[in-house]
């Protein structure tokens, strides 16, 4: 019997897992952005001494997970499961990072929604009594994403104004059955919503309806009002998607103007860094949660936060074949106190 289920798509965790450690690594561009003081490690060179961008991404993820485990005073043998993913074909950056770590591993592909997808599943594993400690991690890299999804780096073209900039970075969170918080309280798993957008330069527009659907469902399932949270923060909708979310939520009778923002909007300085519609990629939300959000929660400046990574689940082939972009968003409620 699904005794922990709340409403249509939400689960309320009975023994809320605690976030005992988190770590973030970012590339040089992100390290010059508005959140630079929050990141744990800023790379000077986004190749990080490796011979390919893919290897650099894998190294970032591996080092990030190791650092998060280390920060908790644990070793990799103490971790029951690693749940991780990235953007590359066959999530290869994660496979190579997991190869080095020797932790039982579940690989996820949720595009840019992977961070809250892994936190959701990790928290359920801990709450269900299947694990005591779970590592959740993701990575993305501007240069690996560009060559897979778009153009060669040195190719001269003008990016559309609605295009987003893939964040180079990795984020890792360690969940534990014991700890003093912050706690994962509720999880709302998103459905795929496809609003029919085919333009890959408008990811924000493609993902925003999924974000709205998950948010509305979360509030209906839990009976909460948006004002309950100190901060509601989506993954990588960027400026275009954020503005659509505000519009559509208002239409549905929810006012998000006071406490809602998006990681893609926060991570770069739009006017200085020429990132057009904002940041994107798995690491966009992961590095912001695992730095700014959790550090502000530790300081007590934020107490109740709804984090929601958003993903565009298309492939280069589906785009070439003219298919539209399926969007998804998973919400995870993180609070400083259990009750």
């Amino acid at each position: 019997m699904a005794i922990k289920k709340l409403g249509k798509q939400t689960v309320k965790l009975e023994n809320p897992p605690s976030i005992i450690s988190y770590y973030s690594i970012v590339g040089p561009k992100e390290g010059k952005g508005p959140l630079k003081d929050y990141f744990d490690l800023i790379l000077e060179d986004d190749l990080w001494g490796q011979e390919s961008w893919e290897k650099a991404e894998s190294k970032m993820q591996e080092e990030c997970i190791k650092a998060a485990i280390d920060k908790a005073g644990l070793s990799s043998q103490d971790i029951d499961y690693l749940i991780a993913g990235d953007l590359l074909n066959q999530i290869i950056a994660t496979a190579y990072s997991a190869r080095q770590l020797a932790i039982p591993y579940y690989g996820l592909y949720g595009a840019c929604s992977t961070m809250t997808e892994s936190l959701s599943l990790g928290a359920m594993l801990v709450d269900g009594g299947f694990a005591d400690k779970v590592a959740c991690a993701v990575s993305s890299h501007f240069s690996t994403a560009e060559r897979q999804f778009r153009y060669p780096l040195e190719y001269g073209n003008q990016r559309k104004m609605s295009a987003q900039w893939t964040v180079t970075g990795a984020g890792a969170t360690i969940l534990s059955s014991y700890g003093s918080g912050p706690y994962v309280k509720c999880i709302t798993t998103g459905k795929i919503i496809d609003p029919g957008i085919t333009d890959v330069a408008n990811m924000g527009g493609a993902m925003a309806p999924a974000a709205v659907d998950t948010l509305v469902t979360h509030f209906q399932d839990t009976g909460l009002d948006p004002s309950y949270y100190d901060l509601i923060i989506s993954g990588d909708l960027g400026y275009v998607g954020k503005s659509i979310v505000l519009d559509l939520m208002k239409e549905k009778g929810y006012d998000l103007t006071k406490n809602y923002t998006d990681c893609g909007v926060e991570i770069f300085d739009k006017s200085e860094q020429d990132t057009h519609a904002g940041g994107s990629g798995c690491a966009c939300s992961a590095t912001v949660y695992n730095s700014y959000v959790f550090k502000e929660m530790a300081k007590g400046k934020l107490n109740k936060v709804l984090i929601m990574s958003t993903g565009a689940l298309h492939s280069t082939l589906s785009t070439q074949q003219g298919e539209s972009i399926p969007g998804i968003a998973h919400a995870v409620a993180v609070e400083n106190t259990i009750e």
């Binding site: 957008i197 408008n202 924000g204 527009g205 503005s243 659509i244 057009h276």
Partner: peptide, 14 residues
Amino acid sequence: REYKEYAEKKMPKP
């Protein structure tokens, strides 16, 4: 279709 038109309007012009 309405959404597509609306989302396109939200895209900043070059």
